[in-house]
């Protein structure tokens, strides 16, 4: 009887300890990786390769997401705001929502699915095929070679992607506003820019940089710590995407509190 009662408690305890251990390990991993960003040697070619992978090859999926989000936002706002005769606020709602929230969050979620999984799978495969041990025997620090360039690349690339997503999202809203909802183009654009402030854009870009760092951190950490064979790499990939997606949403709230709480 006692065992039945204690088993769930033991499971909770084990889970809590495991979570604490993982958080501590991620923190130490991040500190070590960042420390390699300021200590030579630097691997410029690897940084550039990771940057192109994150920024250039994620552009289509982020662009499509942004355009359709802007279009849907304009349509949904119109249906809601029309009840209060507040259609004129649509342009400002679209731009503020996109620049502050939806641009960074949706772009980050899309990149987490693409890049977080890719980093975890590539590094995880290297782990289970001894390639990471091989790096060490070839006098190369794996953290410096594999992790640091990816962290830097994603942290720089995400804000650039979000900037493009913001522009395309506003364009999507403008397309629906002018072609379907009957807004005058110049009036829609004037309304967009009148309500947009520099702080809105900057807060979105800072969020994007943090999200980029988190995506690369979770992708590389899950891959680096993967064990076993194909199943281990698959598990690491799933964990990387799930963990980074949850962290993106949680940190979005924290950053919004920091930037906009009264």
């Amino acid at each position: 009887m006692a065992a039945i009662l204690l088993d769930p408690l033991a499971a909770i305890g084990r889970g809590t300890l495991g979570a604490c251990r993982a958080i501590g390990d991620v923190a130490l991993f991040a500190i070590e990786a960042v420390s390699h960003l300021v200590r030579p040697p630097f691997y410029g070619r690897l940084f550039w390769r990771a940057f192109v992978e994150v920024a250039w090859f994620s552009l289509p999926v982020v662009a499509l997401t942004a355009v359709f989000t802007g279009m849907v936002l304009a349509l949904q706002s119109y249906t809601g705001f029309a009840r209060f005769n507040a259609q004129s606020a649509i342009a400002s709602v679209v731009v503020i929502s996109l620049v502050r929230e939806l641009g960074p969050v949706l772009a980050a979620l899309m990149v987490a699915g693409r890049i977080g999984a890719s980093f975890a799978a590539e590094i995880g495969t290297m782990r289970v095929t001894d390639q990471i041990d091989a790096l060490t025997t070839l006098s190369t620090n794996p953290m410096k070679y594999l992790v640091a360039p990816r962290l830097l690349a994603a942290t720089i690339a995400l804000p650039l992607l979000v900037l493009v997503a913001d522009i395309l999202g506003v364009m999507g809203g403008w397309l629906i506003g002018t072609l379907k909802l009957g807004f005058v183009s110049a009036a829609y654009l004037k309304s967009t820019f009148d309500f947009l402030e520099t702080g809105d854009v900057i807060s979105g870009l800072v969020k994007a940089a943090v999200f980029g760092f988190i995506i690369a951190l979770m992708g590389t950490w899950c891959g680096y710590r993967s064990k076993g064979g194909a199943q281990g790499v698959g598990g690491a990939t799933t964990k990387a995407v799930v963990a980074s997606s949850i962290l993106i949403l949680a940190l979005d709230y924290v950053l919004t509190e920091i930037f906009f709480a009264q």
């Binding site: 290297m126 095929t129 001894d130 390639q131 041990d133 091989a134 025997t137």
Partner: peptide, 10 residues
Amino acid sequence: GMLFQNGALF
């Protein structure tokens, strides 16, 4: 130098 069992080529 080290030769790994499965080669461990990059």
